[in-house]
Design a protein around this nucleic acid. Structure first.
Lengths: 150, 150
DNA sequence: GATAATTGACATTTATAAATATCAATAAAT
DNA sequence: ATTTATTGATATTTATAAATGTCAATTATC
């Protein structure tokens, strides 16, 4: 935690290079993005750029799909269980109108967040997005919450 | 939650009848059971019997598969996130050896639980099994934990 | 006691999610 | 400047999860 390696976060790979590194097609990457599984950096020209951390994140998604046999909608549903509200510590009013807090089909970072604390936050750099890319980290978070509760 | 309707819980339907009520085949029901999605009542002769609540539970599973497009392994993974340890209030020692607490592929009720408080508990009648059949109830539980934590 | 339903194990089929292909337009790289 | 890669949108293919089929043995029901 905390020690952020700039080179890990720096968006350097084009979508073509990323696809080659991941042994998947460009189309597949765009599909994953459309489904809200990840958020790539975008240049002013709208072209995507991927960091090493992005690649790792997508490798993790691939394992979920290919090894764990979890469907994309399954992954999205799992992401929807991330207690982002507890990380962000948003207000009760925010929670009332928040699609992430109230939904159970999509990751919080796949929504716009009008009228909440997340309105002007950049999801790609958000702690929630960055801490819970790995599905298994979600259970650890749930454990953390319950044990500190004793 | 408290008011238990006996007729809802009473195992009355054979697997053939259950399959007809659910518009699926007997094979599919057995497959779901093998995957640990639910636990039917079993007669001494080893034959399954289903209660009305069982039927509702399986309808919910069907919606997850057919409407939400979550794969069976996805559902299992979601079930594995249920904080059973918090419901059961098992000990730290129990948690160390518990497959449910430490795994992230299966519902707790699909494991044997040697050397833990759950060792002699009947999963089919357990609060964890009965409270979290509906996937959406899991997020509500997570919310509950985090809000009482404020 | 005879017919119907269940059991588990293994094989097969089918439905569809996931992955590609194609396209014309735009941007990047050499 | 020309080649190569990107964009989004729509259509098509493929890989495989999910659902059935079949079997002989056991149990339930009429």
């Amino acid at each position: 935690m905390t020690h952020t390696n700039i080179s890990q976060d720096e968006p350097i790979y084009s979508i073509g290079t990323a696809a080659r590194l991941l042994h998947i097609s460009v189309h597949t990457l765009r599909m994953y993005e459309r489904e809200g599984l990840f958020i790539p950096y975008k240049k002013d020209s709208n072209q995507r750029l991927f960091s090493k951390k992005d690649i790792e994140r997508i490798e993790c998604i691939r394992r979920a799909i290919n090894e764990s046999k979890i469907s994309i909608n399954g992954i999205k549903t799992i992401y929807s269980l991330i207690p982002c509200w507890d990380v962000i510590e948003c207000s009760t009013e925010d929670r009332k109108v928040c699609k992430a807090y109230n939904g159970h089909t999509n990751a919080c970072w796949s929504y716009k967040h009008p009228k909440t604390i997340c309105e002007n936050r950049e999801c790609r750099t958000c702690e929630v997005y960055n801490s819970f890319g790995d599905c298994s980290s979600i259970k650890e978070k749930i454990k953390e919450i319950t044990t500190t509760n004793i």
